[in-house]
Structure formats: C-alpha cells, structure tokens
C-alpha cells in the first residue's frame, strides 16, 4: 500500500475543489436552515442556476464571463423569490416539498432534449470557463503550493478564488448573525408567531434568508461549473442537496465556520476511505468476493454514512455545535 499517495490525496482533499463547492453550498444552506429554520431541500437548484448561468450566457449567448456571473446571481434571486412567495407563508414542510420539487424541475428542464441547443441536454455544456482562466495570474505549466498541497496553475487559480469566496461569505454570515437582523432570524427558527407578535415582518425576513442562502448557493455553482470547465445536469440532483445537508450537520448548523469544517471533514473522510480501499483491493488484502475495485465508489459512501451515524449518536450537535443549546428541547 502506498501510504504517501493515500495521505497526499487526503491532504489535498481538505482544501480541494469539492470542499470549496460543498462549503459554499452549505454556508448558503446554513443561513436558510441553520439560522432561519427554513427547510430548503432544493439547494442543488441554486447551485445549478449559478453554474448554468455562466455556461449558457457564455457558450450560447456569446457574452463575457462576468456577465454570466451576474446572470447566475440574478437567476438565483429570482428562483428564491419564486419559491418563497407561495411557500413561506405556509408551514415549514411545504417549503421542503416545494423546494425538492423545484430542484428536480430545474434539473429536468436543463437536461430536456427540447432545450438541447440552449442547455446542452443531458451532456451539458463546456468551453465557457476560459474567460475566467484568462484572468489567471499563475503561469500555466508550473505548480504552486507546498508540502502535499501542490496544484497546477488552473486548479490553483480556482482554489484561490474559491477560498476567497468562502472567506467573504463566512465574514458576511458572521456580521449578519451577530446583528439584530440575525437575532430576528434565530427567533423565527424557534417560533415565528412569537417574533410576529413583537412586530417583526416574519415573511420578509424568511424571504431575505432564502435569497441570501440561494445566492451563496449560486456562488458554489460558479466554482463547480468553472472548476470542472463544464456543467452536466445530473451532477445537480437531489443527492447534492443531501450531501450539503450532511456537511452542514457534520460541522454544526448555525455556526459560522461549521459548513467549512464540515465540508473539509466530509471530503477528507471520503477520499481517505476511497484511496485506502482502492489500494487494499489492488494489493489483494480484500478478497474478490467481498469487493472489487469498481465497487469501492459505492462502499466508500456506505462507510461515510456509518461514520456520520456514529457522529450523530456521539456528537449530535456537530463539530462546532453547542451541546448546551441542543439539550434544550424546543418546548
């Protein structure tokens, strides 16, 4: 077994592209679910809207890259408002159902054959990211970084931009949540009628939270689309949403850095398990009848699931959560 390769891959995963994408998506979800208590099960749709915003604007309309970013952000705001208008006045579970359906509608729409010329159908779009990489200050062909964290110029560039976005989003969430605005949001999570009785327009606050979370989700979509230099509809399915929830609960909901730490742990665990299993199967430590190398991909998720169950049993508040807070049942 090649432990240096296993550990190297694992270390890179801690700050890798997937970690950035999931951290951003989970920061958005944290605003909605963690602080405001909105059960948004359609975060994948906001990510998709961000990614397709750039992809369609650049490849189909032939417009510059930065305009694609604007289109993605505006589309995320529109999607949030559209989802919020009918559902935010209703009980929390209606939002959950509406958002999960909306996310599937978005995915099935962009992959439909009718829209093949606009969204590329099931194979998606590519070739829209060059505008972004043209801005790359790193020299192509060279590697950047230290220790195990050495990346090529393109990956280094998107990672720098991605982590800057993560830092900015965390700062915004921190500033918002220590303010009276954040206090209203936390109040709504507990009991919106109580907050309403104190003269706060609960509906407006929930809408603001949904929009902010959605816009941060769209930022995750930019990193996703640009980082892979392509968009494919099936990457934006419901499992993306559920992994984002996993990341959020892992790190601890309603904590500023919870989503970032959660994303890092999630991908470190996934990559470590995958690499160890692949090497173990390859070296013959694992008998064929138990697992083949092609089955590793599925087994790693099983093991991660098991690890998460154990975490939820022994540390239900997540890594950063406050046990004292969790011990209070919402009477």
């Amino acid at each position: 077994m090649d432990w240096s390769s296993i550990l190297g891959n694992t270390a890179r995963a801690a700050i890798g592209l997937e970690t950035v994408i999931y951290a951003l998506a989970a920061i958005g979800l944290n605003v909605q679910f963690g602080y405001a208590g909105l059960l948004n099960f359609g975060q994948a749709a906001f990510v998709a809207v961000g990614a397709y915003g750039i992809a369609v604007t650049v490849t189909v309309l032939g417009l510059p890259f930065w305009l694609g970013v604007v289109v993605g952000l505006v589309a995320a705001v529109l999607l949030a408002v559209l989802l919020g208008i009918p559902t935010l006045r209703l009980r929390a579970d209606y939002l959950a159902i509406a958002t999960i359906a909306a996310a599937e509608i978005v995915r099935l729409t962009v992959r439909s054959a009718t829209l093949r010329d606009q969204t590329g159908g099931s194979s998606g779009l590519s070739g829209f990211a060059e505008g972004f990489y043209d801005l790359n200050p790193f020299t192509p062909g060279q590697s950047y970084g230290f220790g195990p964290w050495v990346f090529g110029a393109r990956l280094a560039w998107i990672l720098v931009v991605g982590w800057v976005l993560v830092a900015v989003c965390c700062l915004v969430v921190f500033l918002l949540m220590r303010s009276p605005w954040g206090r209203v949001l936390k109040g709504i999570r507990e009991d919106e009628d109580a907050v309403r009785s104190l003269g706060k327009n609960v509906y407006a606050y929930k809408m603001q939270a949904l929009v902010i979370g959605g816009v941060i989700g769209a930022l995750a979509g930019f990193v996703f689309g640009v980082g892979r230099a392509s968009v494919q509809p099936d990457l934006y399915g419901t499992e993306l949403t559920f992994f984002v929830y996993t990341v959020l609960l892992l790190g601890g909901a309603a904590r500023v850095l919870g989503p970032v730490v959660g994303a890092a742990i999630f991908w470190v665990a996934l990559v470590l398990i995958e690499n160890v299993l692949v090497q173990a199967v390859g070296a013959g430590y694992v008998p064929d009848w138990l697992m083949s190398s092609t089955q590793v991909g599925q087994v790693r998720f099983m093991l991660v699931g098991l690890a998460l169950m154990l975490l939820m049993i022994f540390r239900p508040q997540g890594i950063f959560g406050d046990r004292r807070e969790l011990a209070i049942d919402a009477r």
């Binding site: 936390k186 999570r189 507990e190 009991d191 109580a194 907050v195 807070e325 209070i328």
Partner: peptide, 16 residues
C-alpha cells in the same frame, strides 16, 4: 408560552 428557548433571556428582551 412562547419564550424563544435557544436565545438567552437578554436576547429575548432585545428582540422585543
């Protein structure tokens, strides 16, 4: 009673 359980007493008050 709708005390907001996971806010502190003073935060409950400020919210008002």
């Amino acid at each position: 009673t709708k005390a907001l359980s996971r806010l502190t007493v003073i935060e409950n008050m400020r919210l008002g």
